[in-house]
Design a protein around this nucleic acid. Sequence first.
DNA 1: CTGAAAGCGCTAACAC
DNA 2: GTGTTAGCGCTTTCAG
Lengths: 345, 345
Amino acid sequence: MDQAAGRRREPTMRDVAALAGVSTKTVSRVINDQPGVGPEATERVRAAAHTLGFRPNLTASSLRRSDRRSATLGVLFEDLSNPFDSALLRAVEDRARSSGVLVLTGSDEDDPRLQRELLALLASRRVDGMIVMAVGGHQDALQQERERGTPMVLVDRPPTFANTDSVTTTNRESTREAVLLLASLGHRRIGFLGDRQALWTSQQRYTGYLEGLAHAGLTLREDLVMTDLRGPDAAEAATATLLDLAQPPTALFTAQNLLTLGAMRTLRDRRLHHRIALIGFDDFPLADMLEPSVTVIRQDVPAIGRTAAELILARIEGDQAPVVHAVIPALLISRGSGEIPPQPD
Amino acid sequence: MDQAAGRRREPTMRDVAALAGVSTKTVSRVINDQPGVGPEATERVRAAAHTLGFRPNLTASSLRRSDRRSATLGVLFEDLSNPFDSALLRAVEDRARSSGVLVLTGSDEDDPRLQRELLALLASRRVDGMIVMAVGGHQDALQQERERGTPMVLVDRPPTFANTDSVTTTNRESTREAVLLLASLGHRRIGFLGDRQALWTSQQRYTGYLEGLAHAGLTLREDLVMTDLRGPDAAEAATATLLDLAQPPTALFTAQNLLTLGAMRTLRDRRLHHRIALIGFDDFPLADMLEPSVTVIRQDVPAIGRTAAELILARIEGDQAPVVHAVIPALLISRGSGEIPPQPD
DNA sequence: CTGAAAGCGCTAACAC
DNA sequence: GTGTTAGCGCTTTCAG
């Protein structure tokens, strides 16, 4: 047995047909469970296929078949090693596999160039449809792909172009709810740490923050708002800046899971983690094991993935219903860090 | 623009050839950067391809081409939503993409039936090779696939059959090292929590534990060993059992990341997390944020993924070197929980 | 330098 | 019921 080269030629329908003494078309019918083959011939074909170890070549079949299906979906996310992305992939995968569909994946790192390249690689493999997390900024590459007719569903962020389904969550509403919770405990100085403002989710969450302040009758203090933070280190520094203010915040809202980690780190370092309230967007593993346990807004990732998969599969099947923008509710999970009242100095 | 049905026919090389006034073969040469086309014809083809928005159909090309390459890899892991698996996928993906190769994924949940099914789905799409985490127990399906000539690399666990590359880590050696560290601090009763013994990694780590005890001159106490634990809840219960012994352990070694979490939970509940030492196999996000920070053995996941990808890509290229069983060193990360000395009662 | 003919493995559309 | 012919989009082979 060779490791690779001299890879054995896979048996074809011709080989099976020859052994069974029928035509390739008859083999095709048997393999695809199509009617019009006698029980005896069916049996001979089955036996021949089995002895040869025949396995249909899906790529050849999809080339010829009229529907052109490859039974393969493209999934293009920001970073598949991020727990949010990988949980989403898993949900998509499960739903797809139950329809015999496999998933071709890629991570575009929120880089438009990379996204365009990966889109092309997926397209050249003729996937039946794509589930994509749009990069921040321009969605040109996506729009072009969509306009070529590729069935597409966006997740996490909606399209900026027409006629394309999406599945998102209640970014604005849930953030507002969190801010209102903090306000109801008596917090009047609530800091906000946000991701890149080019991202739709960041904008939504920031809007929710503003709405929450307004509903609570609090005025926005610009010095308590830090945005365009990339990653935990930036959040760590931003938190330090906020805490060094003459009038520091008594509560923090972090608009993304990595930012929550950074903020926590600084709070711990300063031994303020039991004195300053913290609510974060996006749950993360072990949030319940920290001290204090971290109150978060949890997206229903399995539902988002399942919904996206169901949408794309339906579109591939030819579903012509009007565009769908599904919004899956997120949930505020109270664990402790969000329930800390304002502390006297 | 329709959502799906009536999907536009993609332009073909024939279309491009017609527009450029050349034969399809000339188009093929230009698209594939093959020599033997004049600069003028090349330009005409390029222009035609651009105006039509032509994109090569890789599935048709791979069907006809002599090397049969689909530039696609199959990746079959236990659970892509597990941080270990997804980090591995990401590493594989990055290395593959730099060679223009995409990855078709699947999660088999360590279920032999599912693994067999997914292997068949991958094979019917004629992936060039597979990177697989073998399920515990029999590797029949894998071996059969391998014997058909499919290039294959196993990760995390080695093959039980011949002639197949693998990439694993220093399970035994690193565990031994951890146990020796605990012993050097004066611990004489070191508990062991292990995953299913059917898994090769579990066996290796248990062997390392035994070696560590032996090297330290400690005798094995069977009542301190709990194996075949599936998931954090089982570990939680097992830890409670150990702590209830007349002579409870003063240190614990947990042989898998989920088990570490379970053990920690019980230690916290009993307020023993600062009194009983703990070292876990596999790092996990936030291990450094807990109190105390958790000492772990960290696998070099990016190196494992990259190595596996490089191996499979080389085999696909026809590399005939002898079988490789790469072992990537793991690292003991001291963070605090593993450095707690034995406490007087 | 370029193209015509054949065919990869399979299925559509018809014939028998 | 079953087979024949043609052709999916591309590349091989070989002829000019």
